[in-house]
């Protein structure tokens, strides 16, 4: 270990890793928004989310980095890929674009960026005087079951409602197929 740290400065390695993670996030976000192909967009989103997980590690919370990869990359991106495969937007004809819309949205995003950066740079950020430094999962679990119990119950209720609601929404067409006649049933029951 001493041999390694004699040749490689750990601070330099940390700086390089930070720049890599930031570059991963920025490039992933650009790919996720600017490219036309929807599959590339999902891969760009996954890249950006991995970068954000790395940033969470730099911010001191390994638990949230693991959760980010598990929930976002592992669940949400895969669900989006499933939706792409089920709806097949690649083969659809794209109608011509009304050009000023792009310009307007660019103007809105630029105005938001400039105004928020002015606010960020002009605010004197001061740390709280008394700060604890307990980042452990144990304290997180204690707080989730004591002070933030309501939040915990609320998020479980929201997730339950989301599951039930998405099943009902996706199955509503299947219910309409009985009233729509036998041809709809053939479409639904294809291999």
């Amino acid at each position: 270990m001493g041999e390694i740290t004699r040749y490689i400065n750990p601070t330099v390695v940390a700086h390089i890793a930070f720049v890599l993670v930031v570059a991963l996030t920025v490039v992933g976000a650009l790919i996720a928004v600017l490219l036309k192909n929807i599959v590339y967009n999902v891969f760009g989103l996954a890249t950006a989310l991995v970068g954000i997980a790395g940033l969470f590690i730099f911010l001191g919370s390994e638990f949230l980095a693991v959760m980010e990869i598990l929930i976002y990359v592992g669940a949400i991106c895969i669900a989006i890929v499933f939706a792409i495969m089920l709806s097949q937007p690649m083969h659809l004809r794209i109608p011509p674009r009304w050009r000023p819309k792009v310009v307007f949205s660019l103007i809105v995003a630029a105005v938001v960026f400039v105004s928020f950066s002015v606010i960020i740079t002009r605010t004197p950020w001061e740390a709280h005087l008394i700060r604890t430094h307990d980042w452990s999962i144990k304290r997180l679990g204690h707080l989730l079951l004591t002070n933030y119990e309501l939040m915990f119950e609320l998020i479980s209720l929201v997730l339950l409602l989301a599951i039930v609601g998405s099943i009902i929404t996706a199955a509503a067409v299947g219910g309409a197929r009985h009233s729509g006649g036998p041809t709809g049933g053939k479409e639904e029951g294809g291999p």
Binding site: V33, S105, V108, A109, V112, F113, I120
Partner: peptide, 15 residues
């Protein structure tokens, strides 16, 4: 960085 992510997300949402 988070401001950049927010703005490019807003641009994508509008465009």
């Amino acid at each position: 960085l988070s401001l950049f992510l927010f703005c490019i997300g807003m641009f994508g949402l509008l465009q």
